[in-house]
Each structure stands twice: as C-alpha cells, then as structure tokens.
C-alpha cells in the first residue's frame, strides 16, 4: 500500500542530535556528503562511515527504522553496485566476452554501495531528528541571504512545510480513490503501458479535484489564523546554536581531518 512509505518521518526525542540546531544539522549533512565522496580509500571511507554510524546510535532511534528507509532505495543500491562490478581495471578475475570482472570493478562496487548506504543513513538522521517545521525554518534562515536577489525565501519555506504536511494526506487519499475505482472494476495491474496510463485517469482526476478543494480550505484556515506572509512573524521555537552543535562541529572537523589524512597516507583504491 502507498501509505506504508514512511520516508523521512520525524521521530520526536531528546538526544544530542535532536537538540542540535536545524541549520547546523543541514550544513553538517552537506559537509558529510561531500566527505563521503572525498574519501578514496577504505581507511578514510571507514572513518566517515563509522562516524555516521555513531551519530545514528546517538539518536536512539530504532535501527529498524533506518533499515526501512534504506529499503526504499535498496534497488538503486543493488543495481548501481552490480553495474559497477563490470567497470574498472586492474587484475581480471573472470571474463566472458566483453564482460570482465576486475579488482577495480569489485572495489568500485563496494565503494558505491557503502557510499550510498551511508548517504541515506545520514540523511535519515536529519529527517528523523528534525521536525518538519524546524527543517523548513532552518532552510529558510540558511537561504535568507538570497532575499537580496528578491528570492521569496519565506514563501518557499511555507510551501515546503505545507507539502511535507500534505504528502501523507494525499498518499492516503490516492489509496482510497484507487480502492474505490478498483471496486468499480478498474484494472490497474495488467495491460501494456498505454492501458496502464489510461487506467490512472480515474485516480488522478479525483485526486486533483480534491487537492484543489483542500488547498481552498487550507487557504481559508490560514487566513482565519491571521496568516499574512513572513512579515512580523515570530516563531515558537527560536533556532539558536548550542553546546550540542559545538560538540558535533568539533567531532566532525576531527573526522574530516582524519579523512584527508587517510587519503594522503594510504593509496587511493578508487579514482
């Protein structure tokens, strides 16, 4: 069922990671992602992966939930992993026609797999430990310098908040409409691509109609609660950097330095 997808859902808690400022989390996430790709040998990759795992442990969120979010893109991981086996050079282990499995290929595959997995893991940490509002608030603040170029930062952030709020609602609705049309004999599981696309029309039209109705209602509800854009707005949760952010920052600066040192002292396994 569509509604079983729980990608990036906020899990309330009081861990060190939960208490970090959303802006710090977003910036650190970006830096970690960069360093995942900076790492070019097993030593440095291990360092950044273990550091990420440590963060996961600190969040005190069941590892099963992380696995679940990983499951969604498992196919991508496996696919790119396998694909990479056949690229690369070095000692040839197995050969059949043009297909060759080489030492470099296997290394590539392992690297790509670990990199993507770590990336998903650490991104999940951000979405699991940061409430949607904090997240969009953080993005809004980080992007606020763009206001000089007349970018509507507040409006963008509000759109994100609403999108995050209504994605699950619309997924559930899709599920309901699909069931209703199936009950009228809609066949969505068989036939060629054109037939399948056509079978979606009875689902998409009601979905659009109901989205507009919801948007109308929501706009009215927001008006009732005196929404008037970003001007003069305050926030209940004020973002401020705290000890948790300093600890995280220092920790990852050490990790990043370690990655660079490992890259220098050990030979590169991948290009």
């Amino acid at each position: 069922m569509v509604r079983d997808i729980t990608l990036g859902q906020y899990m309330p808690g009081r861990s060190l990671v939960h208490r970090m400022d959303a802006r710090a989390k977003i910036l650190l996430l970006l830096a970690i992602i960069v360093f995942i790709f900076v790492a070019v040998n097993y030593m440095s990759l291990m360092l950044i992966t273990l550091a990420s795992m440590l963060v996961v442990l600190i969040t005190r969120i069941s590892f099963r939930l992380y696995l679940k979010s990983m499951k969604v893109i498992l196919l991508v991981i496996v696919f790119t992993g396998i694909l990479n086996i056949f690229y690369g050079s070095g000692q040839v282990y197995w050969e059949w026609g043009v297909i060759r499995i080489t030492e470099g290929g296997i290394n590539n595959a392992i690297f790509v797999t670990i990199r993507i997995a770590t990336l998903v893991l650490i991104s999940s940490v951000l979405t699991f430990t940061t409430s949607p509002t904090d997240l969009t608030d953080g993005i809004e603040r980080l992007l606020s310098p763009l206001k000089i170029f007349h970018v509507k930062v507040h409006e963008l952030a509000m759109m994100m908040t609403i999108a995050l709020r209504f994605i699950p609602v619309l997924l559930e609705e899709t599920d309901k409409i699909m069931n209703a049309q199936k009950a009228r004999g809609a066949d969505m599981e068989s036939g060629g691509i054109i037939k399948r696309v056509k079978a979606l029309v009875p689902v998409l039209i009601p979905l659009f109609v109901s989205s507009f109705r919801r948007a109308n209602d929501l706009a009215m509800a927001m008006e009732c609660r005196c929404y008037n854009g970003g001007k003069g707005r305050t926030r209940m949760k004020v973002l401020h950097f705290s000890k948790a952010d300093v600890i995280a920052l220092v920790f990852f600066l050490v990790v990043f330095a370690g990655v660079i040192l490992c890259n220098i002292y050990f030979p590169a396994t991948v290009r």
Partner: peptide, 20 residues
C-alpha cells in the same frame, strides 16, 4: 478477482470523491 468485485459492489465513505 475483478469478477468478484462486479458481484459484490462496494460504495465507500464519501463516494463523491471518486467521480471523474
């Protein structure tokens, strides 16, 4: 199973949201 759905008709809650 579609044949079963033709024999057992189902009207969901707020069925007007399925009109298209």
């Amino acid at each position: 199973i579609r044949q079963v759905r033709f024999k057992v008709g189902m009207v969901f809650q707020y069925p007007e949201y399925q009109l298209f």
